[in-house]
Design a binder for these strands. Structure first.
Length: 325
DNA sequence: CCAATTTGACCTTG
DNA sequence: CAAGGTCAAATTGG
């Protein structure tokens, strides 16, 4: 898919998400929260409209993760030892920007409910922080090929860009270990930091707790955004587990003033381009099928409205022509 | 003692 | 050839 289309769909999806969040919080939440969400919704649709208006020039210069190459390579025979590299091409790949809010220290994490094992780390040219490479813990037990890369954002150190590759084929969405949340960067290139600082950061990071599985409503949303996503499991098992693991501070009203925004995955990135989905042709059919996402939002009207236009990440037709003609 | 992480070497890709 | 991605031996940690 073309970059502009990705941007457009992301914007629309984002608007949809904010609207839905607003639906579920509009009765209970504070006034400011509602206002914030409304602003985000307006901004998303504004950007979407701009994208449509300037449809000739849709490139997003500042997002290196968008490289929607569709290698049509349909030839991969036997697994030679070095087929690892071939497989890269045909695996579905999507990027998620995760914000770890740190105002109170514990408001989110990169734990997505799966257990990952780190297998590498690289300094990336032009990036302040190294990139961590993770694979599914059950790769050898069950041959699960899922992998992810985690990179701390240059501008905002509370934002992590998580790129998933391949889906989980393992049954066990085994207990996620607190240590495997993806804070991969270590400090071999930050010599100027004091030991105290490093220890402080480590403490903070280890105390972060899962949020993707915290709010039942959110799980449904994540599946709407990532129809193919196995990265955000929604078993109630996991849910209970994480709730049990939450610290009292986190749940208590005294610190919950703005949990709403931290629970929401932030799709930021310049130009409003944050979350994007790419996939190889072999996966497209999987993505476009399964329109059966049902939520039990209190405001059914709005929900239905948005679900009717459930903007898929991969359209079976030319999106821009469809919208602009 | 076993499992996870670290880290430099090695490999692929553009 | 340089940059990114993976491997695997050494190290760390529970």
């Amino acid at each position: 898919m073309e970059e502009g289309q990705v941007s457009l769909i992301n914007e629309l999806n984002q608007g949809k998400e904010h609207a839905r969040l607003l639906c579920s919080h509009i009765t209970s939440s504070s006034h400011e929260n509602n206002e914030f969400l409304i602003e985000k919704i307006l901004s998303s649709y504004e950007k979407a409209l701009n994208l449509l208006t300037h449809s000739q020039n849709l490139t997003e210069p500042n997002n290196p993760t968008i490289n929607a190459h569709h290698h049509g390579s349909s030839r991969f025979e036997e697994d030679s030892p070095r087929d690892v590299y071939k497989k890269r091409k045909i695996m579905p790949k999507w990027t998620e920007q995760v914000k770890v809010c740190s105002r109170t220290g514990i408001e989110g994490s990169l734990d997505d409910g799966y257990s990952w094992r780190k297998y590498g780390q690289k300094d990336i040219l032009g990036a302040k922080f190294p990139r961590g490479y993770y694979r599914c813990t059950h790769r050898f037990l069950q041959g699960c090929q899922a992998r992810k890369q985690v990179q701390k954002s240059d501008e905002d150190p509370t934002i992590f860009e998580v790129t998933y590759r391949g889906r989980h084929t393992c049954n066990k969405q085994a207990v996620s270990s607190k240590k495997n949340m993806g804070f991969g960067e270590n400090n071999h290139n930050h010599q100027n930091r004091s030991q105290e600082e490093e220890e402080e950061e480590e403490k903070m990071e280890q105390s972060l707790v899962a949020f993707f599985t915290f709010e039942p409503e959110l799980e449904v949303k994540m599946e709407d955004i990532f129809p193919t996503s196995s990265g955000f499991p929604s078993t109630s098992d996991n849910n209970n587990q994480f709730v049990e693991n939450l610290s009292v501070d986190f749940i208590s009203p005294s610190t919950s003033e703005s949990n709403l925004f931290c629970l929401s995955p932030c799709h930021m990135g310049s130009g409003g381009l944050g979350q994007n989905v790419q996939s190889s042709e072999s996966e497209v059919t999987d993505i476009v099928s399964d329109p059966t996402s049902v939520t039990n939002s209190p405001l059914l009207d709005l929900d239905v409205l948005f679900n009717q236009q459930d903007f898929q990440s991969e359209f079976p037709f030319n999106t821009l022509e469809f919208f602009s003609s």
